[in-house]
Amino acid sequence: MTEKEHTGKFWETHSNELKINPFQVPEGYFDSLPVLIADRVSTPDHRRGFIFMPRFYLPAFGFAILVIMVFLITNKKESIIEERVLNSDELASVIYDDPTLYDISEDLLIEIIGESAGDQTESEQEGAMEVTPAATQVTDENAIIDYLSESDIEELIYESY
């Protein structure tokens, strides 16, 4: 027997049995179904469309609340940033922490220091030309001691920087 004959025989043999519907329904189901359907179509909910169904608008409402909250929180943060003024310590720490400061090359630093040292020397030389009474008091240690004695200052507090 060929395969075609074999399979053809299968459908012939079992056709009657296979076409029987093995599924069942509860008793009286088809009598009650039209009543149930008539009841459902007469309920106004089914004419309003899916957008008004609770299963749709409850999640939509929740999502809307979430969006509003995120919007408010974001705006609040922005306004705080705008109004805040840094104090001197914070400003110093910001400058200290500024990574761009470390980008300055060593050669440039030496050059800047050299220039500032040169300026200082020049200003010292200019200062030496114009001797003021205050400058005399500061440079002469004996004069300082005399000044302290005259002013009744018993202890010299010396701070070195």
Binding site: F23, V25, F30, L33, P34, I37, V41, S42
Partner: peptide, 22 residues
């Protein structure tokens, strides 16, 4: 229309049900 709809339901409910059930 409700009467006409009821006629339609009664005529096709079983055929449609078995089609869906399969």
């Amino acid at each position: 229309p409700n009467y006409a709809f009821n006629l339609l339901v009664r005529k096709y409910q079983e055929k449609l049900y078995w089609h869906i059930r399969r």
